[in-house]
């Protein structure tokens, strides 16, 4: 038997199929680009899906203002290389104009302030499909998300009333003012993502690889020194070899002690890892259903 492709090629083919369905079914779709590896992977797949034509969607970044500088440089370079249109929705300017609120208190983050910024960007540009690099293995509320996830005119997700999704038939029909969130890499796991990045030799921000960094510890999470964080009593900066497994805001994304400075070492490390990648995300630890609650309101 000669006709078989491995699991990574099958996932790739599925994602490309979904990306092309979005291009064909919607008038004004976009890719939500966070600068993390999953959205970089998604952008890479989009390039493949339409080659030799350019990616027929803009990249949309909801910039919290608390990003790692490496993420922003990488974003700009990638958009330039792909000749893709880049649209930035700024949380800072939403806060400045009073349309979003800055969280205060002990574990303040700009996660919640992302929601009005995202919704404002959707309305301003009239996007009818927003593709994201979310995966079902990330979090239990995401395990039930469809590839094509319908949002009403208030951008709300109704997990109890999702459209059935059968075979590879994706129903993107909607009423005026509604939109879809689309997740082409739903079926990938963290390990699949890393294996594929290795197989395809995809460039990533340097933060993902082990490097020397000035860090401190807070509630058991290793955080990077950052202009957005004020040290508390007893916390002190030291230098260690670390890397990041996910790419959120500098204020909440925990680093890992790791010497994995090549893709092969990362794959080994991920395969052997004993905790999930979101385990170091302070935003998911707020309550047992934190993600589900945020998603209903329109969070990605």
């Amino acid at each position: 038997m000669g006709y078989s492709i491995n699991h990574l090629r099958e996932l790739e083919s599925e994602a490309i199929y979904v990306l092309r369905e979005v291009a064909a079914q919607f008038e004004n779709p976009c890719i939500l680009f966070s600068g993390g590896k999953d959205s970089i992977l998604l952008t890479h797949l989009a390039k493949k899906a339409f080659y030799p034509a350019k990616i027929p969607f803009p990249l949309v970044h909801i910039d919290t203002g608390h990003n790692f500088p490496e993420t922003l440089t990488f974003r700009d370079d990638l958009a330039k290389e792909l000749q893709a249109k880049l649209i930035v929705g700024s949380v800072q300017s939403m806060i400045d104009t009073g349309m979003a609120h800055e969280e205060t208190g002990a574990n303040a983050s700009r996660n919640i302030a992302q929601i009005p910024t995202l919704l404002d960007t959707i309305e301003k540009h009239k996007f009818d499909a927003l593709m994201g690099g979310a995966r079902r293995d990330e979090e239990k509320a995401r395990a039930k998300e469809r590839f094509f996830s319908h949002r009403d005119e208030f951008s709300q997700w109704d997990p109890k009333n999702q459209r059935p999704e059968l075979w590879n038939l994706y129903n993107g029909k909607k009423h005026h003012g509604e939109h879809f969130r689309v997740f082409p890499i739903s079926n990938w796991t963290e390990l699949d993502v890393w294996q594929y990045i290795g197989m395809e030799n995809i460039a990533l921000p340097s933060l993902y690889y082990a490097h020397k960094r000035r860090i401190f510890e807070r509630d058991g999470v290793i955080l990077s020194e950052s202009p957005f964080i004020t040290l508390r009593e007893g916390e002190e900066i030291r230098e260690e070899i670390v890397r990041f497994r996910t790419m959120g805001d500098a204020t909440i994304t925990g680093a890992y002690r790791s010497d994995a400075d090549t893709i092969d070492k990362i794959i080994q490390e991920v395969a052997a890892a004993r905790s999930t990648e979101r385990g170091s995300r302070a935003d998911d630890k707020r309550s047992e259903t934190a993600m589900e609650d945020r998603k209903k309101e329109g969070y990605f």
């Binding site: 491995n6 699991h7 990574l8 099958e10 390990l191 294996q195 290795g198 092969d264 080994q268 052997a272």
Partner: peptide, 14 residues
């Protein structure tokens, strides 16, 4: 034992 070397994962089926 969850070890994945680059040769083996290239031939994994879904």
């Amino acid at each position: 034992n969850n070890t994945f070397d680059s040769a083996s994962y290239m031939s994994m089926e879904l």
